[in-house]
């Protein structure tokens, strides 16, 4: 039986020291037993490493940042669709999710499928709404408060003990030991992501993560817990190992059942000394370490694409414990002519 041929567009080719999930997602898709994929990379910046990886992408298009407006963004996606006849898009960049969720129906009508959380799910789990989210679904979350100005920083002492975490709306999290550091991080974050900035109680313990996929009907199709073994100075995992923590899997399944989560997700959880689990954050997309799940037996990118095209996907029942990922950096050789072609035509 021949494999199903699909044209799949993937964003997040920024496999840098703060990696996007695009390249590992594509590796999962390329290893699929169901599909024979043509991969169209969608890049925001002209030095995203994935652009230059020949075995990863078949073709690359530059797209405008969502901040330039949905219209310009969608026009570009439609143009690419007219050239490449896309079946599925897998968005991997937090700041673009809102625009894709809003455009899901419009793109669906053109035959391009996306499998993302609903706008309600997306907003409900946003960092500034986390306290309410925890209350609603009965999950412990660290105390947090959104702030919009310097004036709020002076009042933090009434609510928090230092150190505390200073987080951006989409990305970035810094530990601050005093108000001066908060101001410093506040400036850095607002310059990049705007307000509000989220101040979060710092919970001591072990950080564990779960990658999961919900089918939108309450079923957990895939769930693999991982413990980071090595963390870079940007707080990114540089090595991790799958673990057998049934409580974590149970918590994930309950959360997906209660929210009827649709699409990929990553739960960031801290387990404190009393073995209590605190939910720190829900990333509403596949995380960059997804290839570990593939290696442990749950091909989440493949399952997500099958859900997107409307197939019935049975849940994965197990994963291999003790599988590890170790990231490494690798220098490719490119040429100014590639850079020229991408910069001048927006395609490569």
């Amino acid at each position: 039986m021949g494999k199903l041929k699909l044209n799949i567009a993937v964003t997040g080719l920024n496999n840098t020291d703060n990696p996007g999930p695009g390249v590992p997602v594509i590796r999962g898709l390329r290893e699929s037993n169901y599909f024979d994929v043509r991969i169209i990379g969608l890049a925001y910046e002209n030095l995203e490493p994935g652009i230059y990886m020949k075995d990863i992408v078949d073709k690359v298009y530059q797209i405008p940042y969502p901040s330039s407006g949905t219209e310009a963004f969608l026009d570009r996606i439609k143009y690419i669709h007219s050239k490449e006849n896309l079946n599925v898009i897998i968005p991997n960049f937090d700041a673009e999710l809102y625009s894709f969720i809003k455009a899901e129906k419009e793109l669906g009508d053109l035959g391009v499928k996306i499998f993302l959380p609903t706008l309600e799910q997306f907003e409900e789990r946003s960092k500034s709404n986390l306290p309410k989210f925890g209350e609603k679904y009965g999950i412990k979350v660290p105390f947090s408060k959104a702030i919009t100005s310097y004036a709020d920083i002076n009042n933090l002492r009434n609510h928090f003990d230092y150190p505390l975490l200073v987080k951006g709306k989409f990305y970035d999290a810094y530990l601050a030991y005093n108000p001066e550091q908060v101001i410093n991080h506040f400036n850095k974050i607002t310059a990049k992501w705007g307000v509000p900035v989220i101040i979060q109680e710092f919970i001591r313990g072990t950080e564990v993560n779960v990658i999961a996929l919900g089918d939108g009907k309450g079923n957990t199709i895939a769930a693999v817990p991982m413990r980071k073994q090595y963390i870079t100075d940007k707080g990114k995992a540089w090595g991790g190992i799958t673990i057998a923590d049934e409580n974590l899997v149970k918590l994930t399944k309950k959360l997906i059942a209660d929210t009827r989560w649709r699409g990929g997700m990553e739960l960031e959880i801290i387990k404190n000394v009393n073995n209590e689990y605190y939910l720190i954050e829900i990333n509403p997309r596949i995380p960059a370490w997804v290839y570990l799940a593939v290696g442990a037996g749950q091909n989440i990118p493949e399952a997500l694409v099958r859900l997107a095209i409307g197939e019935n996907v049975p849940p994965y029942k197990s994963y291999d414990v003790g599988k590890m990922f170790i990231r490494y950096s690798y220098d490719m050789i490119g040429d100014i002519s590639q850079f020229e072609k991408l910069s001048m035509t927006g395609e490569l």
Binding site: N46, Q62, P64, R76
Partner: peptide
């Protein structure tokens, strides 16, 4: 100047 990293044109005329 084309800034490495930052997109300039997107292969189409900027509207």
């Amino acid at each position: 100047k084309i800034k490495a990293g930052v997109p300039d044109k997107f292969g189409m005329q900027t509207k």
